[in-house]
Nucleic acid binder design. Structure first.
Lengths: 257, 257
DNA sequence: CATACAAGGCTTGTATGTAAGAATTTCCGC
DNA sequence: GCGGAAATTCTTACATACAAGCCTTGTATG
């Protein structure tokens, strides 16, 4: 199984695809697991065994382990030495910090975007808005989330800060997991799109105060939903300053379909 | 951090030493290298070989490698696959982003601290100020830096955001390396202490506007110094959007005394 | 029946071996 | 002397073997 990776290396010639130095297994595994966690395909509490993941993904333990360490650094998994690794439960503390951080960074960027945004930026944002409405009407949750992410990312790019999105992404992870659960509420969705539009409108008019107010309200509104979710799905959360190491179940639900 | 989570198990007995479950080699190596890099003991451009580090630190390559991957994630080292790993040069882009991020987060926290700070917080901050002045008079650069860090950290704690400091720390890393070089300028130092004091004064008076203005000026001033440093020590910097993989020297200067 | 206890199976942490890329050096043909 | 290919030697990426801790569970013993 694992021998397939050894094939096709001795190439003397270089096809255009080869020019891009195939990303490492560690990066791939990290991206894959991250996606599965933030999409709730792997819900909080799920045990993640290095051995099982290595077998499933057909790589050795090494890149899997390295990916898990990185996820642990993002607090997306909890690693208990000699005991096990688990998808982290959603911590109210972590969500609060993430919300604070996101608000501080996105608002600061917005203040600069008001001064710097070009027509091109406005157009790109409006295009994302349209795509998001289309996703809503098609009831495509995944696509809707993608476009939501794209909107905030593009907004930050308009402020000239490109590398900063990475930091926001890390902070967003815990928020996103909770938000996924709130999507079934259909009235929220249309509201979200309207809030996005208001930000763009204010941005186009170079109205810093209004833009800031609109974005702040938007981010706060998203955050408020989380309280509702916690009441409905308490098992996904962990109370502040309490973190019980989950006992190790023999079965690993959710890993194999 | 994540270490104290293992308390309250089925222990029949626990000696005091056992209570602290000896941190892993990976964590130790990571902390050590990070310290050496931010203190400029390992200057930008220094090659870091997994084998050499493992031999020097008397561990295997595995924890060394994992520590390097984490440092790469923080952009403190650049890993070129199959080529080598090097202490990253100071990127003007990265410094700009770090400065922006730090300013956004610390100012947002300060706005909350004005509302929340207790007498105890003010007293702690003033104590740090005294210690910093003492370090200045003793011409102890390392201690001065420690107290500078302690000041900003304590300020953020006063805002109630404890875990956020970790994020700021990551952002600060690049800034700190540059700032280390500017310390020899003695007139700056006294100025810094004065700026710190002004922040505390405004905080005590609950004067949000003045506190914000003082902290913003302080952070900006620190940043301005970096331009001077870059002119004096260009070899430590890398121009924006240019990243030449450094050729691999046969000797590894600076690693062994 | 209850309980102490040891064995086994899981986990992560660490060490080490193997593969393959990239830069330098060497050496051969001319 | 010079050019270029091959050998050398470094590197990281990956695979795997071993060590040590923790939990479950079967079992013997009171």
């Amino acid at each position: 199984m694992r021998d397939e990776q050894r094939r096709s290396r001795k190439t003397t010639r270089r096809t255009p695809e080869d020019a891009a130095p195939r990303e490492s297994n560690r990066v791939r595994v990290h991206a894959l697991l991250r996606s599965r966690i933030t999409s709730l395909e792997l819900p909080p509490g799920t045990p993640l065994s290095e051995n099982e993941l290595a077998a499933e993904l057909d790589v050795s333990r090494t890149p899997v382990r390295e990916a898990l360490i990185l996820l642990g650094e993002e607090s997306l998994v909890d690693i208990f030495p000699k005991l096990g690794t688990f998808v982290s439960r959603i911590s109210v503390d972590a969500v609060l910090e993430a919300q604070f951080m996101r608000e501080a960074l996105e608002l600061a960027a917005l203040r600069e975007a008001v001064k710097l945004a070009e027509d091109e930026d406005i157009a790109a944002l409006r295009a994302i808005l349209d795509a998001q409405r289309a996703a809503f009407e098609a009831a495509d949750d995944d696509l809707f989330f993608e476009q939501d992410e794209a909107f905030h990312r593009r907004l930050m790019e308009a402020s000239g800060h490109r590398t900063l999105w990475r930091t926001v992404t890390t902070a967003k992870a815990h928020l996103d997991r909770a938000r996924r659960l709130s999507l079934p509420l259909p009235h929220r969705i249309e509201h979200l799109i309207g809030e996005h539009r208001e930000v763009v409108d204010a941005l186009e008019l170079r109205d810093a105060a209004r833009a800031e107010q609109a974005l702040r309200g938007h981010l706060q509104g998203v955050f408020d939903d989380i309280g509702t979710i916690q009441a409905e799905r308490p098992e996904l959360f962990v109370a502040p300053s309490e973190l019980p190491p989950p006992s190790r179940p023999r079965s690993h639900p959710g890993l194999r379909p």
